[in-house]
Amino acid sequence: MQANDAQTLVLCVLADGPLHGYAINAAIEELVGERLGPGSLYGALARLEAKQLIEPAEEQGRQRPVRLTPAGREALERELRSMAKVARAGLRSLGANPA
Protein backbone atom coordinates (compact mmCIF):
# COMPACT_ATOMS: atom_id res chain seq x y z
CA MET A 1 0.00 0.00 0.00
CA GLN A 2 1.01 3.64 -0.49
CA ALA A 3 0.08 6.92 1.21
CA ASN A 4 -2.45 7.82 -1.49
CA ASP A 5 -3.68 4.25 -1.89
CA ALA A 6 -7.48 4.12 -1.58
CA GLN A 7 -7.34 1.20 0.85
CA THR A 8 -4.89 2.97 3.19
CA LEU A 9 -7.00 6.12 3.14
CA VAL A 10 -10.16 4.18 3.99
CA LEU A 11 -8.43 2.35 6.85
CA CYS A 12 -7.05 5.66 8.10
CA VAL A 13 -10.41 7.43 8.34
CA LEU A 14 -12.04 4.35 9.90
CA ALA A 15 -9.51 4.46 12.74
CA ASP A 16 -11.77 7.05 14.44
CA GLY A 17 -14.79 4.75 14.39
CA PRO A 18 -17.43 3.20 12.09
CA LEU A 19 -18.52 5.19 9.03
CA HIS A 20 -20.65 4.55 5.94
CA GLY A 21 -19.48 5.08 2.35
CA TYR A 22 -20.49 8.72 1.93
CA ALA A 23 -19.02 9.69 5.33
CA ILE A 24 -15.80 7.80 4.53
CA ASN A 25 -15.39 9.84 1.35
CA ALA A 26 -16.14 13.10 3.19
CA ALA A 27 -13.48 12.22 5.80
CA ILE A 28 -10.97 11.38 3.03
CA GLU A 29 -11.68 14.76 1.40
CA GLU A 30 -10.98 16.45 4.72
CA LEU A 31 -7.74 14.47 5.09
CA VAL A 32 -6.19 14.78 1.62
CA GLY A 33 -8.25 17.50 -0.08
CA GLU A 34 -10.03 15.36 -2.68
CA ARG A 35 -12.67 12.66 -2.76
CA LEU A 36 -12.22 9.17 -4.20
CA GLY A 37 -14.33 8.28 -7.24
CA PRO A 38 -17.30 6.04 -6.31
CA GLY A 39 -15.78 3.05 -8.15
CA SER A 40 -12.43 3.45 -6.35
CA LEU A 41 -14.03 3.87 -2.93
CA TYR A 42 -16.34 0.84 -3.13
CA GLY A 43 -13.63 -1.27 -4.82
CA ALA A 44 -11.37 -0.49 -1.85
CA LEU A 45 -14.18 -1.34 0.61
CA ALA A 46 -14.82 -4.68 -1.14
CA ARG A 47 -11.10 -5.55 -1.07
CA LEU A 48 -10.68 -4.59 2.58
CA GLU A 49 -13.74 -6.65 3.56
CA ALA A 50 -12.50 -9.65 1.54
CA LYS A 51 -9.15 -9.38 3.38
CA GLN A 52 -11.09 -9.18 6.66
CA LEU A 53 -9.55 -5.82 7.54
CA ILE A 54 -13.00 -4.19 7.89
CA GLU A 55 -16.40 -5.61 8.87
CA PRO A 56 -20.02 -4.43 8.82
CA ALA A 57 -21.17 -2.34 11.79
CA GLU A 58 -24.82 -1.83 12.76
CA GLU A 59 -26.97 -0.77 9.76
CA GLN A 60 -28.50 2.72 9.65
CA GLY A 61 -31.37 2.55 7.12
CA ARG A 62 -29.95 2.41 3.58
CA GLN A 63 -26.47 3.08 4.91
CA ARG A 64 -24.23 0.18 5.84
CA PRO A 65 -21.42 1.47 8.04
CA VAL A 66 -18.17 -0.47 8.39
CA ARG A 67 -15.49 -0.55 11.06
CA LEU A 68 -11.91 -1.74 11.42
CA THR A 69 -11.32 -5.30 12.58
CA PRO A 70 -8.38 -5.98 14.95
CA ALA A 71 -6.46 -7.28 11.89
CA GLY A 72 -7.31 -4.04 10.07
CA ARG A 73 -6.04 -1.95 12.98
CA GLU A 74 -2.78 -3.94 13.01
CA ALA A 75 -2.38 -3.63 9.21
CA LEU A 76 -2.97 0.13 9.37
CA GLU A 77 -0.49 0.61 12.20
CA ARG A 78 2.14 -1.45 10.36
CA GLU A 79 1.58 0.55 7.19
CA LEU A 80 1.66 3.94 8.91
CA ARG A 81 4.88 3.05 10.79
CA SER A 82 6.48 1.98 7.52
CA MET A 83 5.39 5.26 5.85
CA ALA A 84 6.63 7.31 8.81
CA LYS A 85 10.04 5.58 8.61
CA VAL A 86 10.33 6.37 4.88
CA ALA A 87 9.14 9.97 5.46
CA ARG A 88 11.69 10.54 8.26
CA ALA A 89 14.55 9.13 6.16
CA GLY A 90 13.52 11.22 3.14
CA LEU A 91 13.22 14.43 5.13
CA ARG A 92 16.62 13.81 6.80
CA SER A 93 18.22 13.34 3.36
CA LEU A 94 16.67 16.62 2.23
CA GLY A 95 18.02 18.37 5.34
CA ALA A 96 14.48 19.22 6.44
CA ASN A 97 13.24 18.90 9.99
CA PRO A 98 11.37 15.57 10.22
CA ALA A 99 9.18 16.84 13.08
Binding site: H20, G21, G37, P38, G39, L41, R62, Q63, R64
Partner: peptide, 19 residues
Protein backbone atom coordinates in the same frame (compact mmCIF):
# COMPACT_ATOMS: atom_id res chain seq x y z
CA UNK B 1 -22.64 -2.19 -1.62
CA UNK B 2 -25.29 -1.18 -4.18
CA UNK B 3 -27.35 1.37 -2.17
CA UNK B 4 -24.29 3.24 -0.84
CA UNK B 5 -22.59 3.14 -4.25
CA UNK B 6 -25.73 4.54 -5.89
CA UNK B 7 -25.90 7.42 -3.40
CA UNK B 8 -22.22 8.27 -3.92
CA UNK B 9 -22.53 7.95 -7.71
CA UNK B 10 -25.52 10.32 -7.69
CA UNK B 11 -23.58 12.82 -5.57
CA UNK B 12 -20.52 12.60 -7.86
CA UNK B 13 -22.61 13.18 -11.01
CA UNK B 14 -21.09 12.62 -14.46
CA UNK B 15 -17.59 13.11 -13.06
CA UNK B 16 -18.01 9.78 -11.25
CA UNK B 17 -18.78 7.80 -14.44
CA UNK B 18 -15.15 6.97 -15.40
CA UNK B 19 -14.52 5.73 -11.87
Amino acid sequence: WGPGLEDDARAAGWKGWPS
